[in-house]
Structure formats: C-alpha cells, structure tokens
Lab assay of single mutants.
Amino acid sequence: QGDIVVALYPYDGIHPDDLSFKKGEKMKVLEEHGEWWKAKSLLTKKEGFIPSNYVAKLN
C-alpha cells in the first residue's frame, strides 16, 4: 500500500509523463525511484512522476 504525500510546493511537469500538482495537493505514492516517484493525485486521479523533494509523507 502506497504512502500518502502532500505537496510542499507547486510543480509544473516538464516531461509528458510528469504529474503536475499544486501546493497542498495530496497524492498516493505508487513507486519510489530515487529522486522521482510515480504517484497518483487524489484530486485529479492522474498518474505521473513527481520530484520527491517537493512532497512530504503524511503519517
């Protein structure tokens, strides 16, 4: 089961498979690959890669 993270900063995706998000948006982490994680937005239901240093895990 994936962790839920919250965006600390907004992110505008650079690549087509990036997931753009707004500050405060919550996402479910699907896979962790070093600095880039695959996640699904709980708001938009879209999936893509996010920079892990832009988010914090919720406990």
Score class of each variant (00 low, 15 high):
Q1F: 12
Q1V: 15
Q1D: 12
G2A: 10
G2D: 11
D3K: 14
I4A: 03
I4P: 02
V6S: 04
V6A: 04
V6N: 02
V6W: 07
V6F: 08
A7G: 08
A7E: 03
A7D: 01
L8H: 03
L8N: 05
L8T: 04
L8D: 01
L8M: 08
Y9W: 12
Y9I: 08
P10M: 08
P10V: 07
P10G: 12
Y11K: 03
Y11A: 02
Y11Q: 01
D12S: 12
D12W: 12
D12F: 13
G13V: 04
G13W: 03
I14H: 11
I14T: 12
I14Q: 12
H15T: 09
H15A: 10
H15F: 12
H15D: 07
P16K: 12
P16D: 09
D17N: 14
D17C: 14
D17L: 12
D17M: 12
D17P: 07
D18H: 15
D18A: 11
D18C: 13
D18M: 12
L19R: 02
S20P: 09
S20V: 07
S20D: 06
S20W: 05
S20E: 05
S20K: 07
F21N: 02
F21K: 01
F21S: 00
K22Q: 11
K22A: 11
K22R: 13
K23Y: 08
K23R: 11
K23M: 08
K23W: 07
G24P: 00
G24Q: 03
G24W: 07
E25K: 00
E25M: 02
E25P: 00
E25H: 03
E25D: 08
E25A: 03
K26F: 15
K26I: 15
K26R: 13
M27G: 00
M27Y: 01
M27S: 00
M27V: 02
M27A: 00
K28R: 14
K28M: 15
K28D: 04
K28Y: 14
V29L: 15
V29K: 04
L30V: 07
L30Y: 07
L30I: 10
L30F: 07
L30E: 04
E31V: 10
E32I: 15
E32G: 11
E32F: 14
H33D: 09
H33R: 11
H33N: 12
H33W: 10
G34D: 06
G34I: 04
G34M: 05
G34T: 05
E35F: 15
E35Y: 15
W36T: 09
W36H: 07
W36D: 03
W36L: 09
W36G: 03
W36S: 07
W37I: 14
W37F: 15
K38Y: 15
A39K: 00
A39D: 01
A39V: 15
A39F: 01
K40T: 09
K40N: 04
K40H: 09
S41P: 01
S41L: 04
S41I: 04
S41K: 05
L42F: 08
L42V: 05
L42W: 04
L43K: 10
L43R: 12
L43M: 10
T44P: 01
T44D: 05
T44H: 04
K45L: 15
K45Y: 13
K46Q: 11
K46M: 10
K46E: 09
K46Y: 06
K46L: 12
E47G: 04
E47W: 06
E47K: 08
E47M: 09
G48F: 01
G48W: 01
G48P: 01
G48E: 00
F49L: 12
F49C: 12
I50V: 08
I50H: 00
I50C: 02
P51Y: 04
P51E: 02
S52G: 07
S52A: 14
S52N: 07
S52L: 06
S52F: 07
N53W: 15
Y54C: 09
Y54V: 04
Y54G: 03
V55Y: 03
V55G: 02
V55D: 00
V55N: 00
V55P: 02
A56T: 12
A56K: 13
K57T: 09
K57C: 08
K57N: 07
L58N: 06
L58M: 10
N59M: 11
N59S: 13
N59E: 12
